[in-house]
Design a binder for these strands. Structure first.
Length: 744
DNA sequence: ATGGTAACTTAGTATACCTCTA
DNA sequence: TAGAGGTATACTAAGTTACCAT
């Protein structure tokens, strides 16, 4: 946890030795903009069950800090010379050299033929290792089969053969897939913001129309059965379906629902149904539950039929053709109507999310493509041909009035390229992060209040990986904040706390109403500035009243093209992973232990980024089960050890081959037991540490996949141990191009 | 500058699905 | 061979950022 080596600390020291102008010199201008009055200091987390569950104890939170401190020391490892020094991010400025093989995000004049060769080699390596793996797998299967073969009935044998056949099919399919994969990363990039040249698709898939209730299922008002009109009935069912959730008891939810429901009613209905509390949805609710149950209990065949029907829909609507390649669409289904349930204390919870009609949808495709047919009797709102955007269809959602898009899957070129670019920007930041840090350290002393605030905000964003924090319209969304939108009530300053000086205690709700709680020692100058910013302010006032995300990002982009607040999150996440992996590296470990190390590195990032999850409902149970398994395995091990001892004793002095064989067997049994035990214990540790932490988000969005691919190569761990199929597809570009010596 | 919004990324949760075990 | 347990996927809300109009 030595923070000494990091630049922040170094500069801090320098500053300490050279105390410059203090905050007193600053003239605090009165706060200007921001129409919304946020006078009242809202009590935090009231009634937020979600938040509550996710609350961390202060102890855990301070552990968080230690982790981030740890990370700090990693930041300044000796840096490799940047590979693409002339990398320019701005899409518009990016120009691709036609005749070199450099990465697509480089404008480098110097050709890098080396890279191409490397790539070729990587290709071969990949193929080779894949073939080898396959072979090994094949042999193993065979052995297994032979082992079981003669002692088991023919029926079982057949099953085994079937299993093997299925496996072979899988492998074949995989090969096929690999062959068909579009290796877009080897191709030229398009000019200036052009996303595609040809795009054809079938349009979005609409959810089925509402089917009216069976006659024996009734809605009651004031104890009397009421046959509702179709639209009113549909919305009533939405409510009935949610009645197991606690939020249907909430005032806000109920009011919003009732208001919107009444809008769907006929005049008569509206006149009759005046009070939600007199509504009895019991039968609708029971019917829904029954349906769910019935669906669960479908026979195998029926389930298969359903599955095939779904597959047909996917085959028809789930793909598009983009520049000669068939690409999977991410969300080709129009979102079905229902009741809106935002996250946390959302003021709009319970409102009706309306059914989307083709007349609401805009289609985007090539002029010369087969234009998708709207559903019978309908027409599209608009068909356009805009190849500067990536969406295939869009509509406006009625609850928040925002746009929704149909876009491609994460494994598509369009998404992959962007993702790659994101990591290249973050790597670029690595080359200038020291300078930027020095700059904001300097800015902490600025005469300009705005500059100081910007510097402090940047310090938080860099050190704590906070989000930018846009302003939000009050009353439209839950009250959450990011860095720039922090309010005075969200931090508490402690001159000393637990033996540490200048501690800032953060407590606020961030994205998705996830609580951020952390106690962080900061450098003196930041601390002093915070005191200054908080002077004469109420809890509900903005901490950074002279700053917003636009200003911040504008400044950042002047420091490095393409630099925005979120790049720091990507950068710090990836560099942390790399550093942690390096630190935890131990070739002597077995695979399970190596994976635990990887997960721990991943976890450090997840903690940094505050990626939380609800502890799985079955957590305690499954933990207990695992512990029971461990215990029984321990007993087994003891037994096996005893038996080994016994066998040894018997074999001692004897040259009887049989006895020696027995000893060997027992030895193996002990060994196997030990291995399994270790594996389970490692698993238990991993799971316990992961209780409230979600690793997937950072894996998916923040960690440069090349770091993980290189780690696997170096540690001789199979990639599929850390990346599932989806991830491998998404990161195909990285898997293909990364060698063991990759450095972020 | 400010404000609005289009476009796209990031986020957690519900549920479908798969695998292993009793 | 069901079903428990765990993982993958679907879903969609909630962010960020660029860009445009005023």
């Amino acid at each position: 946890m030595a923070e000494d080596s990091n630049s922040v600390k170094a500069v801090e020291k320098e500053l300490k030795d050279n105390p410059g102008s203090s905050g007193d010199a600053i003239v605090v201008k009165p706060k200007k903009k921001k129409a919304k009055a946020k006078g009242k200091a809202k009590p935090q987390h009231e009634g937020k069950e979600k938040t509550h569950r996710k609350m961390k104890t202060p102890k855990e939170a301070s552990m968080d800090f230690e982790d981030s401190g740890d990370r700090r020391s990693q930041v300044n490892v000796k840096e490799e010379p940047e590979e693409d020094p002339d990398f320019v991010i701005k899409g518009k400025k990016r120009k691709r050299k036609v005749d070199n093989t450099d990465g697509p995000f480089s404008t480098s004049e110097a050709p890098l033929p080396k890279k191409k060769k490397k790539k070729k080699a990587a290709e071969e390596g990949q193929e080779n290792s894949a073939t080898v793996k396959k072979k090994i797998k094949g042999t193993k299967d065979k052995v297994k089969k032979e082992e079981g073969g003669h002692s088991v009935s023919t029926k079982k044998k057949k099953t085994k053969e079937e299993i093997e056949a299925a496996r072979a099919l899988k492998i074949k399919k995989k090969e096929e897939e690999e062959k068909q994969r579009w290796r877009w990363w080897e191709e030229e990039k398009y000019e200036d913001g052009i996303k595609w040249k040809f795009l054809e698709h079938k349009g979005p898939y609409f959810p089925p129309e509402y089917q009216t209730l069976p006659d024996d299922v009734k809605f009651y008002y004031n104890g009397k059965p009421v046959k509702l009109s179709l639209p009113a009935e549909e919305v009533a069912l939405f409510f009935a379906q949610m009645m197991d959730h606690e939020y249907t008891t909430k005032e806000v939810f109920r009011n919003n629902f009732f208001r919107d429901w009444r809008k769907e009613m006929t005049l008569e209905e509206r006149q009759l149904i005046m009070d939600l509390n007199k509504c009895d949805f019991g039968e609708l609710h029971a019917m829904h539950k029954q349906k769910v149950e019935a669906r669960k209990n479908l026979s195998k065949e029926e389930k298969l039929v359903n599955k095939e029907a779904n597959q047909k829909i996917v085959d028809e609507y789930g793909y598009c053709v983009l520049d000669h390649h068939r690409e999977r669409i991410g969300n080709f289904k129009i979102e079905p109507p229902g009741l809106f349930r935002g996250r946390g204390d959302h003021p709009k919870q319970g409102m009706l999310k309306k059914r989307i009609q083709p007349e609401d949808a805009i289609i985007n495709c090539s002029k010369d493509s087969r234009i998708p047919e709207p559903p019978a009797g309908h027409r599209w709102k608009e068909v356009r041909h805009d190849n500067t955007v990536t969406w295939l269809a869009s509509w406006t959602e009625n609850v928040q009035g925002s746009c929704k898009y149909v876009m491609l899957n994460a494994n598509s070129k369009l998404k992959g390229e962007k993702d790659w670019e994101k990591y290249e920007v973050a790597r670029k930041l690595k080359t200038c992060v020291d300078a930027i840090r020095a700059q904001y350290q300097e800015d902490l002393k600025s005469k300009q209040m705005g500059t100081r605030q910007r510097a402090v905000a940047l310090y938080f964003i860099d050190k704590l990986a906070l989000r930018a924090g846009n302003e939000k319209e009050e009353g439209e969304t839950a009250d959450t904040v990011g860095c720039c939108s922090l309010r005075v009530e969200h931090i508490t300053l402690h001159d000393t706390l637990d033996g540490q000086k200048c501690v800032v205690e953060f407590d606020f709700l961030g994205k998705d109403c996830i609580r951020y709680y952390n106690k962080v020692p900061v450098i003196k100058r930041v601390f002093k500035n915070l005191k200054l910013f908080m002077e004469n302010k109420q809890g509900g006032d903005d901490l950074f009243d002279r700053l917003n995300t636009q200003l911040l990002n504008k400044h950042l982009s002047s420091l490095m093209p393409g630099l925005t607040a979120k790049v720091f999150r990507t950068y710090n996440a990836s560099i942390t992973l790399q550093q942690q992996l390096k630190e935890l590296r131990n070739m002597k470990e077995n695979v399970a232990e190596k994976l635990l190390s990887y997960n721990r590195a991943n976890r450090a990032v997840a903690i940094l980024c505050n990626h939380q999850r609800a502890p799985p409902k079955t957590f305690e149970q499954s933990m207990a089960n695992l512990q029971a398994k461990i215990d029984s395995r321990k007993e087994q091990l003891d037994l096996a050890k005893k038996e080994l001892k016994q066998a040894k004793k018997e074999a001692k002095g004897s040259s009887d081959n049989k006895l020696l064989i027995v000893v060997e067997k027992k030895k193996k049994a002990v060994q196997r037991c030990e291995e399994q035990l270790l594996k389970m214990e490692v698993q238990a540790t991993d799971r316990e540490e992961n209780k409230q932490i979600a690793l997937s988000t950072s894996k998916l969005n923040y960690l440069d996949p090349r770091i993980s691919v290189a780690w696997c190569k170096n540690m001789e761990v199979q990639l599929d141990k850390i990346y599932n199929k989806t991830l491998r597809d998404k990161f195909a570009w990285a898997i293909d191009m990364t060698e063991h010596d990759f450095v972020f």
